[in-house]
Amino acid sequence: MILVIEQLLNGLQYGVMLFLMAAGLTLIFGIMGVINLAHGALYMVGAFVGTWVATETGSFWLGLPAALVAAMVTGVVVEALVVRRLYARDHLDQVLATFALILIFNQLVVLIFGRQPVFTPMPELFSGSLEILPGLFYPMYRLLIIATGLVVAIGLYLLINRTRVGMLVRAGATNRDMVRALGVDIRLLYTLVFGLGALLAGLAGYMTGPILSVQVGMGEQILLATFVVVVIGGLGSVKGALVAGLGLGIVDTMLRAFLPTLLLHFMEPSDAQAVGVGVSAMGIYLLMAIVLLFRPKGLFPAEG
């Protein structure tokens, strides 16, 4: 039982990370209609710059604002120089341009930081484990990630539902042309949203630094899973990103943890292992295929 709860928490933590990435991506897609493959690059920028500052200063916490600012500034610059020219283009041009950005960012990181993975320090305060239930010790840092994700979720909820900017964001996700027609400074709104998405990606990148490895190409590793979350959740829907992110994180973790053991009841050990791993590797894609077959627009489609 304790194992199940622990795995649930693990799934939750992974899901929260996916949500942080997916929230920005889904907003960028929903409001500007841009498929941004370079979202993973912003995640990488956050991780590298944050780690660099943390290593130079010796403080994890100083790295945090650095990561956020670096990712956001990069995002805003990318928006102004490249993405802005893509709004009127079709998805194919966006795919090609943002793919080009991936190549460029990866190689810039090689030039600036070198090819080897770097070490992100763990904050002293959160390096231990906490006994959350009798007999269940859970790493504090992972709890911190979960908490961060939930705070961001609440913050985004308030921002989107309670502020004027949020209203425009909602309107933009539902009907882009309408907002434009109303005379809102759409360019500023776009830049804001893109910057916010980049900031969240940078946050995700830096926060995962101490548990994952910070290296060139780390953005592509999480990019596909993020897109899966965005599509399952429904394009443009932050609520969808949250539900799909958490759901996917939990399903993925649970499959990996329990499927091979479960299959042992039905087949030979070597087969169970092979099939179990195979299915869990395909798990998130299988899940997306199934969701889309029944709900072609995802769980919470924002477009009306």
């Binding site: 622990e6 693990n10 992974y14 548990i211 596909l224 973790t253 990996r256 943890a257 091979p260 590797a281």
Partner: peptide
């Protein structure tokens, strides 16, 4: 246990 090639989180394995 066999993990996945694009896996980043090993918490499930740790628990096992």
């Amino acid at each position: 246990l066999y993990t996945q090639l694009d896996q980043t989180d090993y918490s499930a394995e740790m628990a096992q």
